[in-house]
Each structure stands twice: as structure tokens, then as C-alpha cells.
């Protein structure tokens, strides 16, 4: 019965486990929603909006067969953020997105997670050479997109924010040629 139990794969990296959301992630997710850190992804959010974000993350896997993973920090077991593919109404195409929670930034965890998620999406989910929407004022995300080898392809509109940059990630083949 896939409608009730989406098959969300587990990916392990050096420092992170990418996995399905659990009840135990809820406090960290709600704290992120309340905080100013969520301003780049539609926040700050009420507790009801954060709960909606958790449910919609699960519903995305149910209806599209891919989506975002929670990031579990292996050393501490804490919830460090989320990363993965988003394809919602208003999106031009599936997007690689990332949110890192307070206390876990500045360590390259978003890079590590985004690389793993991008690779899995390309190899297993047929999503190769995807885009990322980045608000140019979010300089940390701009730097991360560039570090991932994505290039500023064009500008667009997302969630009623105008002039969001659309970065294009390299395909697997392009990454191999560059290596």
C-alpha cells in the first residue's frame, strides 16, 4: 500500500544519514520554521505551517516517488536539516533544495548532503542535471550552488519572490568529464 508507506531510501555519507522524516525530527523542524533561518523558504512559520511542511514532505514522496530527506547527524544523532528534490506547482522542473538547521552550518554538511542527494536522484530517480532555485540575497546558498558546480542559467519567480536565480547542476556525464 504505497499510499501510506512511501519507500524512502536511506543514504549514508561520511557524517550524515539521509532518511525519511520521523516524529523525533519534529522539534528541530518546528524550531527551524519559527526561526529567521526559514525566511528563504517561505518562513518564519507558525507551528501549523511547519507541521504542514512535514506532511507535504511525506506527501511528495507518496505522489511523486521522490522528495526530500531528513538529515541525521551521525555523530550526535541530531536532526541537522533536510535536502532533496522538490517539484511543486509553480516550479519549472524538479529542484534540488537544502535547509541546514542552526548549529550545523559552516561545516560543509549541506554540500555533503546535496552531493549525495543529487547523485542518488540522477542515478536512481531519473533526475539528472536538475536545477536549484536560489534567492541571490541568500549568499550562503549561492556559494553552495557554485561549489556544487551549478551555473546561473536564468532568473525566475518562485513562491511569489521575483528574480530568484535558477542554477543548473551538471549531469553525471558532465561531472565525469570534469573529474
Amino acid at each position: 500500500m504505497t499510499a501510506f508507506a512511501p519507500d524512502i531510501p536511506v543514504i549514508t555519507t561520511n557524517r550524515l544519514i539521509l532518511r525519511a522524516p520521523r516524529e523525533a525530527d519534529w522539534d528541530a523542524m518546528a524550531a527551524f520554521g519559527r526561526s529567521d533561518r526559514s525566511k528563504w523558504v517561505g518562513g518564519p512559520m507558525s507551528v501549523y505551517q511547519s507541521w504542514g511542511a512535514l506532511l507535504s514532505m511525506l506527501g511528495h514522496w507518496v505522489l511523486r516517488g521522490y522528495g526530500m530527506w531528513m538529515l541525521e547527524h551521525r555523530e550526535t544523532g541530531q536532526t541537522a536539516g533536510r535536502v532533496g528534490m522538490i517539484f511543486n506547482a509553480g516550479w519549472d522542473e524538479p529542484e534540488l533544495g537544502w535547509h541546514i538547521y542552526e548549529g550545523f552550518e559552516g561545516q560543509g554538511l549541506a554540500f555533503e548532503a546535496a552531493q549525495a542527494a543529487r547523485d542518488f536522484a540522477a542515478r536512481e530517480q531519473g533526475l539528472d542535471g536538475v536545477i536549484s532555485y536560489v534567492n541571490p540575497a541568500n549568499t550562503r546558498s549561492v556559494r553552495l550552488a557554485e561549489r556544487l558546480g551549478a551555473v546561473h542559467e536564468r532568473d525566475g519567480t518562485l513562491m511569489e519572490v521575483h528574480e530568484v536565480r535558477i542554477y543548473r547542476h551538471p549531469t553525471l556525464a558532465q561531472q565525469e568529464r570534469a573529474a
Binding site: A3, F4, A5, P6, E23, G42, G52, A53, L54, L55, S56, M57, L58, G59, H60, V62, L63, N88, A89, G90, L158, M159, E160
Partner: peptide, 17 residues
Amino acid sequence: VYQVAERFLAMAGQWVL
């Protein structure tokens, strides 16, 4: 629209939890 789409996914996602 983007909020509506989130609500739609959330309706599907509540079943999981």
C-alpha cells in the same frame, strides 16, 4: 498556488504519519 500545492501534498502526507 505554491501554498495550495503544499496543502495538497500535506493531505497525502498525513496518512503516512
